[in-house]
């Protein structure tokens, strides 16, 4: 039982930053731990288990974030979350935008009304 805060600084690597799919993955990963996990950026502190908060971070490629956790499995939590970010969320990069960030395809031909 440790109440020590574990911290690690990481850099967002994937070209599109923390958009919907990465935020989903990140929140999912964080939620697997009992520890309280949060992310700090320039004094701003958000809950890593909250996808909505992660999205409002609007962290783009190159953003430096501090991953922090407190609780029994804090060490492992920080390691897993940091690794996920450093791996660039396993996104096959940049050239084609991930379909996650557009609405489901709709067939909507030009319409005058």
């Amino acid at each position: 039982m440790s109440d020590r805060v574990v911290r690690r600084t990481v850099t967002v690597r994937n070209a599109q930053g923390i958009h919907a799919r990465p935020a989903d993955l990140l929140a999912k990963t964080a939620s697997q731990f009992d520890a309280t996990i949060w992310i700090e950026r320039q004094g701003e502190r958000i809950d890593a288990k909250s996808i909505l908060s992660l999205l409002t971070l609007a962290a783009v490629e190159g953003t430096r974030l501090e991953i922090c956790a407190e609780g029994t499995d804090a060490e492992e939590a920080v390691a897993k979350v940091a690794e996920l970010i450093e791996r660039g969320f396993d996104e096959a990069d940049a050239d084609s935008p991930s379909p996650t960030d557009s609405s489901p395809p709709q067939h909507r031909p030009g319409s005058i009304r």
Partner: peptide, 11 residues
């Protein structure tokens, strides 16, 4: 990859 949209919504 399209279903993932709903996975994010769900979260």
């Amino acid at each position: 990859q399209y279903g993932a949209i709903f996975s994010a919504h769900l979260r």
